[in-house]
Structure formats: structure tokens, C-alpha cells
């Protein structure tokens, strides 16, 4: 439990002359829920894409689950889970078929797939719908299912890219319960969001502005450091200096 789940040192990514992520440095403990906040285009998603090994950093380094993202991206991929902002299950496959497919891709044994499928369906209350096409189940369940599928191979770190955009408050609440359950079992969660109330649920957050980390710490620490009463004010102060009181 001593080694951090994620470490980033001066991680930088440029697209041409545009610097999307500018020398960010941070560490995430094992079992921590770490929030990546920022306006659209602040570099959250680019940073995450480097950490999950689909985008090469221009400079700097990072390790995820103990492996270097530059030199060992294959190993990183086996040990992480990922859920994108786009809904990413196959609509024309059944719930079970989706679970089996991802289980197979991540090398989970058939026996484990069978027992975990049962667990997932029970946990999110879809026991009756295992053989229904994903297209036919409500969006809230799809989202929870996608999250469970991302955890199917028991990854050490799970990356969630704006997982709650477009779902109702009740489902969002349920979703966060799932996130806490996951973290309690020792899985590290890195989540990007632009809902500031969700940021309060994270143990620590980092606020990105123009590709750099403008503030980092627990929500309370961040509020105190910036000198603002709420995270909303923090956000306004950091993204539009001079505009907020």
C-alpha cells in the first residue's frame, strides 16, 4: 500500500505549437478517489489519454499501477479499467454477451466470467435482464453496467472520463456509491468531471487550467488555498481571474 497507484512527473503533450498538457506533476494513492476538474479543453482528457496508454507524452514521465506508460503501455493496459464519456457497450449484444466479450479480451477465465457476471447483475439490480439487448435497458443501468464491465478484470486503477454526463441525479448518486464501493476494495479511481458538486465526493482533486494544474489537494484544502467559500468560486477564480469577487 506504500507505492502510489499513479505518479506523473512533468507530463507534457503538445499538438503542434499548442500545449494541451503542460508539465503536470501529481501522485495518486492506492484506493484513492482522485478528481480531475477543469473547463472543456483544459487538458483533462488529454492527460487521461496519456495515462491509459493511447497517447504518447511529448515529454515527462508517468507510471500507472507500477508500470511506465512510455515503455510498458501493454502492461499498463492489462491493469487498468477505462470508461469513456461516450457510452461504450455494444447495443446489439445482450448484457451477458457484452460482459463475456470484455472478459475474454482482458483474459479473465471463463469460470471467473460466469461468477462475476452473476455478481454484477445482482449488484446493479439487472438479474432479470441478463439476456436482454443492451439497447433495450434504461440509460442509468447501461452506465452502471459499463462501469462494472470496466472493473470486470479487477484492475488496480480505473479511469472514468466524465462518466456521469447526461444521467439523472438519482443515477448519479447510485453511480457514486458504486465508485466508493470500488475504492473501498482498494481500487484507485481517477475521474474527470465538470460537475463541481461531484468534486466534493473526491478525496482529492486537481483543477486544470490551460493544460496546467492550478490547484490540488482535498476539496477543503483547495478552497482554503484559493480563498473561496465554495468550489464554484474556486473554479471561477482560477478560470477567470478578476471576474470573481
Amino acid at each position: 500500500m506504500s507505492e502510489p497507484a499513479i505518479t506523473a512527473r512533468d507530463l507534457t503533450r503538445r499538438f503542434g505549437s499548442f500545449t494541451a498538457v503542460n508539465a503536470i506533476t501529481f501522485e495518486v494513492e492506492q484506493g484513492e478517489v482522485f478528481g480531475f476538474l477543469g473547463a472543456n479543453g483544459a487538458g483533462k482528457t488529454t492527460a487521461m489519454r496519456m495515462l491509459i496508454g493511447v497517447l504518447q507524452p511529448t515529454s515527462g514521465s508517468a507510471t500507472v499501477a507500477g508500470f511506465d506508460i512510455k515503455t510498458q503501455p501493454e502492461r499498463v493496459r492489462r491493469r487498468i479499467g477505462y470508461m469513456s464519456q461516450k457510452f461504450s457497450l455494444y447495443e446489439d449484444l445482450t448484457v451477458r454477451e457484452n460482459i463475456t466479450l470484455y472478459g475474454g479480451i482482458y483474459g479473465v477465465s471463463n469460470q471467473d466470467i460466469a461468477t462475476r457476471t452473476g455478481e454484477i447483475l445482482t449488484r446493479i439490480g439487472l438479474e432479470h435482464a441478463g439476456n436482454e439487448l443492451v439497447r433495450d435497458i434504461p440509460l442509468g443501468w447501461k452506465q452502471q453496467l459499463a462501469f462494472s464491465v470496466a472493473l470486470l478484470h479487477r484492475p488496480g486503477v480505473v479511469f472514468l472520463d466524465e462518466p456521469t454526463s447526461g444521467v439523472d441525479p438519482i443515477t448519479r448518486r447510485r453511480f457514486w456509491e458504486l465508485i466508493y464501493e470500488t475504492a473501498a476494495q482498494g481500487t484507485t479511481v481517477l475521474i474527470t468531471t465538470h460537475y463541481l458538486d461531484e468534486a466534493e465526493y473526491c478525496r482529492r482533486i486537481s483543477i486544470m487550467v490551460d493544460g496546467a494544474i492550478a490547484a490540488m489537494g482535498t476539496p477543503t484544502e483547495v478552497r482554503q488555498a484559493v480563498g473561496a467559500a465554495t468550489l464554484d468560486d474556486v473554479f471561477l477564480k482560477l478560470t477567470r481571474p478578476g471576474a470573481a469577487a
Partner: peptide, 13 residues
């Protein structure tokens, strides 16, 4: 388009 390709690219396959 559906975003499933990204999931596949992130996976070990």
C-alpha cells in the same frame, strides 16, 4: 462513432 473503438484500443487486444 459509438465510442466502442476507444474501449478496444485501451484494452490489451
Amino acid at each position: 462513432e459509438t465510442g466502442t473503438m476507444e474501449m478496444l484500443l485501451v484494452s490489451p487486444i
